[in-house]
Each structure stands twice: as C-alpha cells, then as structure tokens.
Amino acid sequence: MSLTLFLILCLNGLQYGLLLFLIAAGLTLVFGVMGFINLAHGVQYMVGAYLVFAFTGLTGSFWLALVLSLIAALMIGLLMEYAVFRHLYARPHLDQVLATFGIIIFLNELAKVLFGPATLSIDTPELLSGSIQITEQLRYPVYRLATIGAGLVVAVGLFITISYTRTGMLIRAGSTTPEMVSALGVNITQLFRIVFGVGAMLAGFAGVIAAPLFAIEPGMGDNLLIVAFVVIIIGGVGSIGGAFLAAILVGLIDTLGRSLVTELLGLAVDASMANQIGPALASMLIYILMAAILVFRPKGLWPAKGVA
C-alpha cells in the first residue's frame, strides 16, 4: 500500500462520509426532535438524483438543475409530511416503519416506471470536470473535491444554525422536551415541518451531488439509508455534531476497510482465504462498530446535550 493510494482512499472516505452526513443530518434531527423513524428518508436521496437527471435533460445546465432539484426536493418532502407523516407522529414506531416502508416501495417503483430499470448517469458539470495535481503522483478529480467542499459548507452552516440561531435553539429545546417548548407558545408542528423539509432537502442535495459520481438507479437510497442509521446511532441520536463526526468515521472505516482488510488478513491467513472473507468482513466493519457502541455506549459517541 503506497502513500498515494492511502491518500486517495482517505479522500474518497471523506467524500463518502460527507455524503452520509448530508443524509444523516436530516435523519438524526427528524428522529431526535420528533422521535419519528423515517425509512423513506433514503428515498429522498434517490429522488434528488433522479430530479437532477431530469432537470439537466430539460435545461441542459447542471447548475440550473441543481437549484430546481433542491426546490423540488423540498416541495416533495413537505408534501409527504403534509399528506402522510404528520398523521404518524403520535403513532407507535412500528406504524411509522410500516408506512414509510410503503412509501419506499412506491417511490422505487415509480422511479422504475418513469425512468426505466436500467442505471442512468449524468456528466460532471464542465466547470468542475478534470482533475488537479495534489502530490507528485496523485491527481484527484475536481468534482470529488468540490463535493467534499460542499459537504463541509453545509455541515458548518447547519452547525451554526443549530448552535447560534433562535430556530436552532428551539430545535434543540424541542428535541429534549417538546411539551415544554409547546407550552411556551412555540408552534411545535411548524417547527417540525421546517426540520422535516430541510432534512428532506439535504438528502435530496446528497442525491444531486452524488448523481454524476454513481449510477442512478431505483432503490439506490435503500442501502445508504441503513448506513445513515448506523451513522446516527454511532454519533448519538439528535446530535448534529455527532452525526458529522460519525459520518466521517464511518466513511473512512468503510472505504479504507475495503482495501485494507483483505491485505491485513493476507498476513494472517493464506491469500485465497483472505480474498474470500476479506470483502465480507470489510462490509461488516461498520455494523460491528455500531453493535459494539450499542452494547458499551448506547447513547452514542457524541450524544446531544441534555438528552435524557
């Protein structure tokens, strides 16, 4: 393993981590603030990717498509909240799981009907195509660096909003004692709606920026959703900072694990054996981490303050 390869893996891991953060941020807020399990959150990621595909086709410009997709993702999120989710806040978790599972099934199938079952792709925008020299032997695609930058900007923005603005204060208060916040005259349903809409938009944004990098296909959000849940459990439910650190951690572990585990195993057992179990073990790493954290530190590594 050369240093260059290691660097590339770290950058890829960071990028994957930030993508996870964009999805996990909304999930952890919706889960932490409203106690609502939204399995359909991963579908928003898919929706974002398909939206940018459709709008790029229509307008011919990635940037215009980006803006339109964000607006549309926000609208779709708010629509789902209005039509379905708001009726489920007071329901048991199982009902929420079932209803949002139904929405996943519907939207995955809808994507298949509208765009076909084959994988689609879009080009990286011209402004960000190409790659730059980072070290002697290492060139890295500009677009991937840009997604890292975009992820960081959103993370900082969210952190400031949650920590220093009035809305952020209300969200934090609402996540601990919603009854009290409501009793103080804050329209808690309105607050929930804002959180929900922004969460859906962020997941959509993740889908938009992922679209030029990965294949766009029905069901693309399903596995990412599960990983996002892993992230928010590791980070501590309801904690934006926790979600950020855990997302980076999971992104790095998963990306580095995929190349390192097989090599490390090769030192202990013979090569064919290592090739056989290495990939499976690498896929398992994040789940092993989550299980360990649930057993030993059930509140997560960086829990939200004041959560009982």
Binding site: L98, G102, I103, I105, F106, L107, N108, E109, V113
Partner: peptide, 11 residues
C-alpha cells in the same frame, strides 16, 4: 407495476 398500488395501500 403492482408496487405502485401496494406501497400506498400499506400507507
């Protein structure tokens, strides 16, 4: 495309 009906039915 029966899932288009099945999903909303669950909801």
């Amino acid at each position: 495309e029966w899932r288009l009906i099945y999903g909303p039915l669950l909801v």
